[in-house]
């Protein structure tokens, strides 16, 4: 079979799935660019009457959505940095050092992933209330990094295991201390793995809803997903034009991040998958 025919066949086979995946995005884009009265017209059209950006203006000026984005960004970046700061040394120790109960620990990490955060939410709320951290972005940063850390450790561990130990040993013999060899030789080599893990953590944190909703009670502290959810139920009507504009904006950072590191992502995921 020729290469062209093969690729046409592949596209035909994939197109139903492609439609399912792309339909919500197209709806989102189309709705976000329409005016309020245009959304529920009898004759539905994909293309808006005019290229209308008023929804975005309303979102940022009247609804203070920028604030929510900043909150989300602060939390996601904070949670990513904090969980990496703990997960990198943990994964390093689990792959390179003799840790008593190594396999029990790694299994435990996996088990924590089987519990939905929503089950723990009341306990978490009481704990952060005790520490006086309710309504502080810090509480969500800590909670997110705790929850996504297990995944980060797993992911990093499988990547670290692919780095030959010889390289570090060579560095030690060349005169590098343990920490210096880690920073100068080991970290640069596992950068792809670290980047992929960071992206996953960032995206997970960016999209997380339940914990942000519970721990941040003040409107000024709301994250983007929480504020979007509030757009659906706070008024007498559901403001689809605003919701779609907001989801569009909220999905942009995630899309940019994924697109820019796609090369790393495929490499990193396959490494994690095979090993």
């Amino acid at each position: 079979m020729s290469k062209a025919r093969k690729s046409v066949l592949c596209w035909v086979a994939l197109s139903p799935f492609l439609i399912i995946v792309l339909f919500p995005y197209l709806t989102m884009l189309s709705t976000a660019l329409k005016q309020k009265d245009e959304i529920f017209t009898f004759h539905r059209s994909w293309l808006p009457r005019e290229f209308y950006l008023g929804n975005f203006v309303e979102l940022f000026v009247d609804r203070n959505f920028g604030r929510a984005l900043v909150n989300s960004l602060t939390i996601s970046v904070g949670a990513t940095l904090l969980s990496l700061a703990v997960a990198i040394p943990a994964a390093y120790a689990l792959t390179r050092m003799r840790v008593p109960g190594n396999s029990a620990l790694t299994n435990y990490l996996l088990i924590t992933q089987m519990i939905s955060p929503i089950v723990l939410i009341i306990g978490l709320f009481r704990m952060f209330a005790y520490f006086g951290l309710i309504n502080s972005l810090m509480s969500v940063i800590i909670a997110h990094s705790a929850f996504f850390m297990a995944f980060a450790v797993w992911m990093l561990r499988s990547y670290f295991a692919t780095i030959p130990k010889d390289l570090e040993e060579a560095a030690w013999i060349d005169g590098a201390g343990r920490f210096s060899a880690f920073v100068r030789i080991f970290l640069p080599l596992c950068l792809p793995g670290v980047v992929v893990t960071a992206i996953f953590t960032f995206v997970n944190s960016w999209n997380e809803y339940a914990m942000s909703l519970t721990l941040l009670r003040d409107v000024s502290q709301q994250t983007a997903p929480v504020q979007i959810a509030f757009l659906t139920g706070t008024l007498y009507q559901i403001e689809w034009h605003l919701i779609m504009a907001a989801t569009l904006i909220a999905s942009v950072p995630v899309a940019i991040v994924f697109a820019s590191i796609q090369r790393y992502l495929i490499g990193g995921m396959s490494l994690g998958g095979v090993k």
Binding site: P164, D166, L167, E169, A170, W172, I173, G175, G177
Partner: peptide, 15 residues
């Protein structure tokens, strides 16, 4: 430690 013995090593994998 290996850092302080002032020996040099050539590995099978070259490292």
């Amino acid at each position: 430690g290996p850092q302080k013995r002032d020996l040099a090593m050539v590995f099978q994998t070259y490292a």
